[in-house]
């Protein structure tokens, strides 16, 4: 059972959360103008890396807020957590 750091409530047990898949997959600003491939990309395609992965969680049995976590999919090590809408820490630098 993971220990997930909620930016508002602190570290809490995984059972209090619901997983939301890859983070930073933005809803297209104007969906009607994107082509089929770009739309399919948005709806169906997600990364599946071995290593650090920015993903969404919601503290469903707590504050009910969505936020993002960078978790290593191999070791489950959590290296960053930040509110929804905030950029991934260090992402701008790389």
């Amino acid at each position: 059972m993971l220990l997930i750091p909620c930016p508002w409530c602190g570290p809490r047990a995984e059972i209090e959360f619901r997983y939301g898949g890859q983070a930073h997959v933005a809803y297209p600003a104007d969906p009607e103008t994107v082509d089929d491939a770009a739309w399919a990309d948005y709806v169906f395609m997600r990364d599946n890396p071995k290593g650090p992965f920015a993903e969404r969680w919601v503290h469903a049995a707590g504050c009910r807020r969505w936020f993002n976590v960078v978790r290593d999919t191999l070791t489950n090590e959590v290296s960053a957590w930040y509110p929804a809408g905030a950029p991934r820490p260090g992402a701008a630098a790389s």
């Binding site: 619901r18 809803y27 009910r64 969505w66 809408g85």
Partner: peptide, 10 residues
């Protein structure tokens, strides 16, 4: 949950 997700994240 669906409404909250869209309101909070998008």
């Amino acid at each position: 949950d669906w409404l909250e997700e869209w309101l909070q994240t998008e």
